Computed example of a mutant assay.
Amino acid sequence: MDPNNLPDWNTFYNECVEDFMNDTFVEDMMQQEMEFYQQQQHANTVRPKKTRRVIKRDREAGNERLMKDYFSENPVYTEELFRRRFRMRKHVFLRIVEALGSYNPYFLMSVDAVGR
């Protein structure tokens, strides 16, 4: 080996770095690492989708039935049964309903988000 023909270390280093940077193996490894990292992040943030159970209560029919049973001209239940169920006399209940309705429009009957 001729010591005069040895490559310069800086040149050798630069060539190695250039070969290393041009190699697709490194890019592939970096791509795989990034995909793995993204999958881990996604797995940590995504929760399984839960579905809600819907119970159809038919609120409109219930309201009509309540009005017919307690507040119609000929109610099904008497004043005594009204007081037992609601713990107040009917005229007191109606005064509270009227006062709340005049105090705040939130307590008045209106159309809901579904349009009923």
Rank of each mutant, 00 (worst) to 15 (best):
P3M: 06
P3Q: 04
N4L: 14
N4R: 07
N4S: 12
P7H: 04
D8R: 02
D8E: 09
D8F: 04
W9Q: 10
N10A: 07
T11C: 10
Y13A: 07
Y13Q: 08
E15R: 10
C16Q: 07
E18N: 09
F20G: 09
F20V: 03
F20W: 13
M21V: 08
M21G: 12
N22F: 00
D23F: 03
D23C: 11
T24Q: 15
F25N: 14
V26H: 12
V26N: 13
D28T: 08
D28P: 01
M30A: 15
M30P: 02
Q31Y: 09
M34P: 01
Y37V: 09
Y37W: 06
Y37N: 10
Q38Y: 14
Q38H: 13
Q39Y: 10
Q39T: 11
Q41R: 11
Q41I: 14
Q41G: 02
Q41L: 10
H42R: 12
H42G: 03
A43S: 11
A43D: 15
N44I: 12
T45Y: 09
T45V: 15
T45R: 13
R47C: 06
K50A: 07
K50M: 09
T51S: 12
R52A: 10
R52N: 14
R53M: 01
R53L: 00
R53H: 03
V54F: 09
V54N: 10
K56W: 08
K56T: 08
R57V: 06
D58C: 02
R59Y: 07
R59W: 06
N63A: 09
N63W: 07
E64I: 09
E64D: 14
R65P: 00
R65A: 03
M67F: 11
M67C: 12
M67A: 14
K68V: 10
D69L: 02
Y70A: 02
Y70N: 04
Y70W: 15
Y70D: 04
F71G: 05
E73R: 03
N74G: 01
P75H: 00
V76R: 07
V76C: 04
T78Y: 00
T78H: 00
E79I: 09
E80V: 04
L81H: 01
F82G: 00
R83H: 05
R84V: 02
R84Q: 10
R84G: 02
R85C: 03
R85A: 04
F86I: 02
R87D: 12
M88I: 04
M88Q: 14
R89E: 12
R89A: 06
R89P: 00
K90Q: 02
K90D: 01
H91I: 08
H91L: 11
V92A: 10
L94G: 02
L94T: 03
R95Y: 08
I96N: 05
V97D: 03
V97R: 05
E98K: 12
A99D: 15
A99Y: 08
A99P: 01
L100I: 02
G101M: 11
G101N: 10
G101L: 03
S102H: 08
N104W: 00
N104F: 00
N104L: 00
P105Y: 01
Y106E: 06
F107Y: 15
L108Y: 03
M109F: 08
M109Y: 09
S110W: 00
S110R: 10
D112F: 05
D112L: 09
V114I: 13
